[in-house]
């Protein structure tokens, strides 16, 4: 029986991962939280590793001192947004029920200058303190020989459009990193086989004594 068990163990070590590979729904059940800072809002999206969005889940935002500054739920797309009161690091905690929980850190910088841009509105970027942006705008105005009169809202829209694909890609990358990898499955089975060997070794030695 012992020999057969060992044989079937090795057979299953080969067969089980292959079965898992072909099983399309082979993902660990874990909730993940992807959060970023955009505009003057903290945005977040909660999703399970199976691809399902974490809908109607509790979300809490803590500031750097550990004080809860927001308590709410994700929407139908598993998304959430929150306007941070000031600069600093924020810790987001998502509770998706049944003991599933995820955390994410977002640091907020230059909140003031950003709201400054928004408030500046039609007056253009001349009023903002962001010299880099100003220079960029001057350059683009020069290039267009003054015919392109941008205001900050249009600029925001253009930036959004340009950055969306990158954001999307980052999100996919994060999602991919959260997937269970085939090599991890194999590694786990290898550890179990190794532990079995160790256990047999020690048990045999004890028996001889």
């Amino acid at each position: 029986m012992n020999f057969h068990a060992v044989k079937s163990m090795f057979v299953s070590i080969i067969i089980i991962p292959i079965l898992v590979m072909f099983c399309s729904s082979a993902q660990a059940h874990r909730v993940n939280l992807f959060a970023w800072y955009e505009g003057n809002m903290i945005m977040a999206e909660g999703y399970f590793s199976s691809g399902k969005k974490a809908v109607n889940s509790t979300i809490m935002v803590f500031d750097s001192e550990g004080k809860e500054v927001f308590h709410g739920t994700t929407d139908k797309k598993g998304e959430f947004c929150f306007q941070p009161p000031r600069d600093g690091d924020y810790r987001l905690v998502l509770e998706a029920g049944m003991g599933h929980r995820a955390e994410a850190l977002v640091s907020v910088k230059d909140l003031k200058s950003h709201t400054g841009v928004l408030e500046a509105g039609h007056a253009g970027l001349q009023t903002t303190e962001d010299s880099e942006l100003q220079e960029e705008f001057k350059a683009s105005e020069d290039a267009g020989k003054g015919t392109t009169a941008f205001n900050s809202k249009e600029f925001e829209q253009i930036l959004d459009r340009k950055l969306n694909p990158i954001k999307e890609q980052l999100f996919r990358l994060a999602e991919q990193g959260d997937r269970v990898k085939f090599r991890d499955v194999v590694a786990g089975l290898g550890y179990i086989a190794g532990l079995m060997g160790l256990a047999i070794y020690f048990a045999q030695r004890k028996r001889k004594k």
């Binding site: 068990a5 079937s8 163990m9 299953s12 070590i13 089980i16 991962p17 898992v20 099983c23 729904s25 082979a26 993902q27 660990a28 059940h29 199976s50 269970v180 499955v185 786990g188 089975l189 179990i192 086989a193 532990l195 079995m196 256990a199």
Partner: peptide, 14 residues
Amino acid sequence: ALLTAAFFVASLVH
């Protein structure tokens, strides 16, 4: 060990 392996992998089957 065999059943440990089965348990370890079972959690991947949704």
